[in-house]
Design a binder for these strands. Structure first.
Lengths: 231, 231
DNA sequence: ATCCGGCTTCACGCATCCTTAATAAAACCT
DNA sequence: AGGTTTTATTAAGGATGCGTGAAGCCGGAT
């Protein structure tokens, strides 16, 4: 039962090094030299994990991550240059499951691959065993019934508010940018939508009884986005 | 399983001393008297670590480091003369992992070699606990949650402080110049930003409970920059 | 057509954070 | 020791981002 790893990387040398180390660790490796190729191979060959370089010809790593995420939840590890724009690093880290900065230690890459695979399957098991209810503190959200309760009391949310809350509660502790949230909810994103999100968040806080100045659940990460505390 | 160390050093006496101490510590030692020879031996013999003098005939230490880095990520420790401050900065900019100033204590060299080997080849905590927390002493930083804790207690940091700490904790023991840090955080760098960095560092120390006069974590390397101690 | 709930936009106030500048304190060199 | 350079600290702007009430807009329902 050897797992398959996709390497999306245009530099042939780096590709070769990664392949060597990963195969040596017992993985099956498939390769792609650009984002489009990578996307096709992810769809056709269903690898268990993808290593994705940010800087690639054609579709870059960021685009690729977004498009993959629309279809699949496989672990994605971003590889980025050391002196890349920090916002990109942080932003990508949010969308992907992990990130590694160049230059990297190949052994560390192998370790991270293993770690992410293990974490992913564990998480998968947990989700299968548990019920469909998403629970964080006193809040619980039922995706099927489209309902949210706090301490058992029903809270009436609008569809948009519900989607936002569900997205955050699906990954407690994880930070989402306003852009990410908006894209998932409305497909596209315009610069001016930032404020829209703030208003939604504001109303959500109001309804779930959170004080924006000292929120228990819906926390602001200044300059980045929002997260729900993992209680 | 003795590790191989390459010594790139034109001074025969220093070469001899280093060889003696390193072999005494159980390492296999190969030697090169100039940069070109060193590069060849790195390619052909794949040492586990390289000790590189800056001042060498032919290809100097910078060139060598750059050329090696294009191919390999093996730990490189720069050896430089005492009063060549700018040299040191340059060496670290290029991608050296550590630096030692002449005159040095041979035992310290051995200690640094061991430390760098351990840091590089050890599959650190990534594999053990499954999470990718960055941990240094009592400090731990979670890139995804954007949270930092000390002894389990949450520490609130600003985005910039967080980025700085993350950068340092990603490479414990490695020195970063103010310029390097600022560039990664803000994209560009102006001469006047040095002071800004100092202020950030000062506040970071304050928040993580470090005394600047005797810091446990965030140490100043005068003339160079900052590093976080590899505890 | 009108109403109405929900989404969006706008404007303003507020909080936070980054930077600057000025001063103090080390560390270093001669 | 004395002067110089580098670093640390503090406080005060100034820039940026966030929160929120109110008004406008849009589409579905009555």
């Amino acid at each position: 039962m050897s797992e398959t790893i996709l390497i999306a990387e245009d530099d042939a040398d780096i590709q070769e090094i990664l392949k060597l180390y990963l195969e040596n660790a017992g993985f099956r490796v498939i390769r792609a030299a650009d984002g489009n190729q990578a996307f096709e191979k992810i769809c056709s060959e269903h690898p268990d994990l993808a290593l994705v370089d940010i800087m690639m010809p054609g579709m870059n790593g960021y685009e690729l991550t977004k498009r993959v995420r629309a279809k699949s939840n496989i672990p994605i590890i971003i590889i980025s240059a050391m002196n890349a724009d920090s916002d990109k690093i942080l932003g990508l880290d949010i969308g992907a499951d992990d990130y590694i900065t160049k230059p990297f230690n190949p052994l560390e890459v192998v370790a991270r691959v293993k770690s992410n695979l293990r974490r992913f399957y564990q998480l998968d098991n947990v989700q299968q065993n548990g019920s469909d209810l998403l629970r964080v503190g006193a809040l619980s959200l039922d995706p099927k019934k489209f309902s949210v309760t706090k301490d058992g009391a029903e809270i009436a949310l609008t569809p948009t508010e519900f989607k936002i809350l569900m997205m955050l509660m699906e990954h407690p502790g994880r930070v989402f940018t306003k852009m990410q949230i908006y894209e998932r909810i409305n497909g596209e994103y315009f610069e001016s939508d930032d404020n829209t999100m703030m208003v939604h968040i504001s109303k959500l806080r109001d309804k779930i009884g959170d004080d924006s100045k000292n929120p228990v659940y819906l926390k602001t990460i200044r300059g980045l986005g929002y997260k729900i505390e993992d209680i």
